[in-house]
Simulated scan of single mutants.
Amino acid sequence: MAKKGEGRRYPADKKKAPKANFLFPLRLPMVRSEPDPLFARFCKSIGRSVRCPASTAENGSIVGRFGGPQGGVPPIDDVAAILPAHLRVTFILQQMENEVVSGSGVDIPCWARWETHGSAATEEFGDGGPFSLPAPGPGEIWPVPHANGIYDALVEDGCGSTPVFPVEFHSSVGEMPDILSPYVLIGQFDAEDDSTLQPNGFWTFAYTIRANGTNGGVSDFKFRGIVSVTCTNIETFSP
């Protein structure tokens, strides 16, 4: 998970962000059958324990397997206890880019920050942020190590429906020559989205922040990632 920032950057009385519709469903499923390694790879990439159900292909479709590694349908009396009930919504940052627009671009060391809130969430990991990660230098494209989670939320008993998940998303870039320096805001992106999040689905997000560096250079910081929506029995992020 990205590093937790110091204090909220977006107070509750902040003017509402504009509608952006920056969440888009993936065109193709990421998981097709049990041998497909993408599902297990995704589960490991989040950085915290995620209960990913085993699955197998039957007649060309994905069927969840219950009852442990050997699969099999559990006794009817145990179904309610085993079936995941809650919805987990996770924003996973996969790539950051610093594209030079003018001058030498923003070349003072920068950090990117995120704060996210979903009104339908019953719990948000780390209160939704802010979380921070170092940002790339001019002309650099960074794949994000371990596909860092920048937002994680639970919706109690949300797996039996496809709820609308209103989300308020704030992202910024700030110059910080070293870890003890103040955060100098040089660009930000604020948005709202009301997506209907289908359980066990994947969405993508992509946006650009135009940043004006204090050195006179200008860069476009581009961020890309996915949003996973999974069913889980996890009830809280607390230990």
Results as ranks from 00 to 15, higher is better:
R9K: 15
P11W: 10
D13C: 10
K16G: 09
P18T: 04
K19E: 13
N21M: 11
F22S: 06
L23Q: 04
P25R: 14
L28C: 06
L28I: 13
L28W: 12
P29W: 00
S33W: 03
D36W: 01
L38M: 12
F39N: 00
R51M: 12
R51K: 14
A54R: 15
S55Y: 15
A57M: 14
A57G: 11
N59E: 15
N59D: 15
G67E: 04
G67D: 07
Q70P: 02
G71V: 03
V73G: 05
I76P: 08
D78V: 02
A80G: 04
L83K: 10
L83Q: 14
A85L: 08
V89P: 02
V89Y: 08
V89W: 03
I92Q: 14
Q95F: 08
M96S: 11
E97C: 11
N98Y: 09
V100K: 14
V101T: 11
G105N: 02
V106F: 09
R113L: 05
R113S: 12
A120I: 09
A120H: 07
E123C: 04
E124N: 02
G128K: 01
G129T: 03
G129V: 01
P130C: 02
P134V: 07
A135M: 06
A135Q: 03
P136N: 01
G139C: 03
E140W: 09
V144W: 05
P145V: 05
P145Y: 00
P145Q: 02
H146E: 15
A147F: 05
N148G: 09
Y151K: 02
L154S: 01
E156K: 10
S161M: 12
V164I: 13
V164P: 09
P166L: 07
P166K: 07
F169V: 04
F169K: 04
H170W: 15
S171L: 06
S172R: 10
M176S: 13
D178N: 15
P182S: 04
I186P: 04
G187P: 08
E192S: 06
E192L: 12
E192M: 13
D194S: 10
P199R: 00
N200R: 00
N200V: 00
T204K: 15
F205R: 03
F205D: 00
A206D: 13
T214D: 07
G217N: 04
G217A: 02
G217Q: 01
S219H: 09
D220M: 08
K222A: 13
I226S: 11
S228T: 13
S228F: 04
S228C: 09
C231Y: 04
T232G: 02
E235R: 09
E235I: 05
